[in-house]
Design a binder for these strands. Structure first.
Lengths: 146, 146
DNA sequence: CTGTATCCTTAGGGATACTG
DNA sequence: CAGTATCCCTAAGGATACAG
């Protein structure tokens, strides 16, 4: 696995090391907004991530405490990944990024209504999604509270 | 300059392309929180960016509309960089990242009081910094409003 | 299907020298 | 001081094959 580096104790730098990588952010997006949670679902998500990269990023996310991994209750041979509390706490950042791109990317895929709702009703939108993420906890294999 | 790529019209992917790079985020941090605005100030900021990388990232930021560039009024031979409106709008993302790292990085440099204030008084903190950024507009060479 | 392992190419980026 | 230009090397990551 590509190791974590600590060039400084700057919080921005820490965040970058933990999740500030293109593929990593796309995986978090898949977990957070598209309900994807298996290797295959990430693999065929559209941007075309390579298997070695996917494995590397999943491991990094797990080691970093953002994602937990465990056997699928229904099919134990298959693994399922889920956001931990720490991962769910990335929601504000993701929503900010969506809002920003919704504002400045002419070709964005974000529906105008959602961009609008994000501006006028941000708190509710966030609470709503957070609630959904928390309550889908059946896949939260390794909860943060020990 | 390393070109912008568009693999998908996903807003997360757009954000990554625009500013989701380690060095880029550190430059934005310097502009936003440390009042750094010249080549030399970025260069000696601590993490040790190389000159070619710095030049590349500054150009990308400028082309992407996040940063504007212009001669220093006091020393026209020197350039000054400043956040545009689009750049200032990255403030929420940066604050979220700081808050998240403040929460989860045991060795963070963020003072505990600031982490706390970010939690209890987020709106005010953001408004305050935004105000400061906007009013330091003497360096806003190319304002967004034409 | 869920990964590991290997190969191989390219591009990111450090070091350094050079220019206006 | 504010960059530009080159060199060179490492590592990120695409393609593919293979294994449990």
């Amino acid at each position: 696995m590509r190791p974590f580096k600590r060039k400084s104790d700057c919080p921005i730098h820490f965040a970058i090391e933990r999740f500030g990588d293109a593929w990593t952010l796309l995986i978090i997006r898949d977990l957070m907004f598209f309900g994807r949670s298996t290797y295959g679902e990430f693999l065929y998500a559209g941007e075309g991530i390579a298997t070695n990269i996917l494995a590397d990023r999943l491991e990094r996310l797990e080691v970093g405490g953002i994602v937990s991994k465990g056997p699928d209750p229904e099919r134990p041979s298959r693994s399922r990944y889920a956001l931990t509390q720490q991962g769910i706490d990335l929601l504000p950042i993701m929503l900010d990024m969506i809002a920003w791109s919704g504002e400045y990317d002419p070709g964005t895929a974000v529906p105008p209504q959602f961009v609008e709702r994000l501006k006028t009703d941000r708190v509710a939108v966030e609470a709503e999604i957070r609630e959904r993420l928390v309550s889908s906890g059946q896949f939260l294999i390794a909860p943060d509270a020990p």
